[in-house]
Computed example of a mutant assay.
Amino acid sequence: MSPYLVSPVTNCGRSCVGLDVEPASANLLSEAREGPEAVGEREALSDGNSTRDALRGLFARLAAGEREALGEVYDLAATRLYGLALWRTGDPADAEEVVQEVFVRLAERHERLADVHDPIGWLLTVTHRAAVDRLRRRRVRAAEPIESCGYLVAPGGEPERRLDAARASRELAHLPPPQREVLFLHHFLGLSFAAIGAVVGAPLFTVASRHRLGIARLRRRFVEEESR
């Protein structure tokens, strides 16, 4: 069984889904504190061959009219899509709406899915665009603080791991959405900068810059906390 387990999280005020990402949380915090040389080997969550092959098969079934395959796509991908939407919109309720929009679009355009060669990339791209659109349309309203949504969780295991996961959620919440999004896709979904650029529609150097600025901002926060 994969070490990355889907876990329910209910401290958002609404029911949301959590992603157990113990190694990724520790690596992100280590890079922010000590630089990239302190980071261990990253483990990809979303673009492994098994997930990619499974989604290709499910997309082919959807294209052939097998609507029940939609639920299987949801089981495989919804947690990752919710995470991207959450870190982009900064609002758990908006993130849930974005994921719903993505799956409605998936159902409505099912006949086109046979030509999709990278299903997880396609899903992440659609999620990114839907999240950006929702931000543009959003009315001014009180939103649940993103740091109160413990999306990145560590069920059981070592207390230090649980603290790493909780702190990763809290620290990411303080970054601007474009930086938050890049760090999530790179550290927690294992995407390369080139793959992230394809998802968010940005050049490679822009993605790398957002990552660098996000890490630098996290590092400043650590320095400020330690100097208090």
Score class of each variant (00 low, 15 high):
3 P>F: 05
4 Y>I: 11
5 L>D: 08
5 L>P: 00
9 V>W: 06
10 T>H: 11
13 G>W: 07
15 S>R: 14
15 S>M: 11
16 C>S: 12
18 G>M: 02
19 L>N: 00
19 L>W: 00
21 V>I: 09
21 V>N: 08
23 P>W: 01
28 L>Y: 03
30 S>P: 05
36 P>L: 01
41 E>F: 08
42 R>P: 12
43 E>P: 06
44 A>K: 01
50 S>N: 14
50 S>C: 13
52 R>Y: 12
54 A>C: 10
58 L>T: 03
60 A>V: 11
64 A>Y: 00
65 G>E: 03
67 R>F: 04
67 R>I: 09
69 A>K: 03
70 L>P: 04
71 G>L: 09
72 E>V: 08
75 D>V: 09
76 L>Y: 05
79 T>F: 04
88 R>K: 11
91 D>R: 03
92 P>G: 06
93 A>L: 11
101 E>M: 11
103 F>L: 04
109 R>S: 12
109 R>Y: 03
110 H>S: 15
111 E>F: 08
111 E>K: 14
114 A>R: 08
115 D>F: 10
115 D>M: 10
115 D>V: 12
115 D>E: 15
118 D>L: 09
124 L>F: 00
124 L>T: 00
131 A>G: 05
131 A>F: 00
131 A>K: 01
133 D>C: 02
138 R>Y: 05
139 R>T: 11
140 V>Q: 15
141 R>S: 12
141 R>H: 12
141 R>G: 09
147 E>S: 13
147 E>N: 09
148 S>H: 13
149 C>F: 07
153 V>E: 06
156 G>D: 04
160 E>K: 12
162 R>V: 12
163 L>Q: 13
164 D>C: 06
166 A>T: 08
168 A>F: 01
169 S>K: 11
172 L>I: 06
183 L>Q: 01
191 L>Y: 03
193 F>P: 12
195 A>P: 05
199 V>L: 04
199 V>S: 05
205 F>R: 15
207 V>T: 02
208 A>M: 08
209 S>K: 13
211 H>D: 08
213 L>Q: 15
214 G>Q: 09
215 I>K: 08
216 A>S: 10
217 R>C: 05
221 R>L: 11
222 F>Q: 15
224 E>I: 13
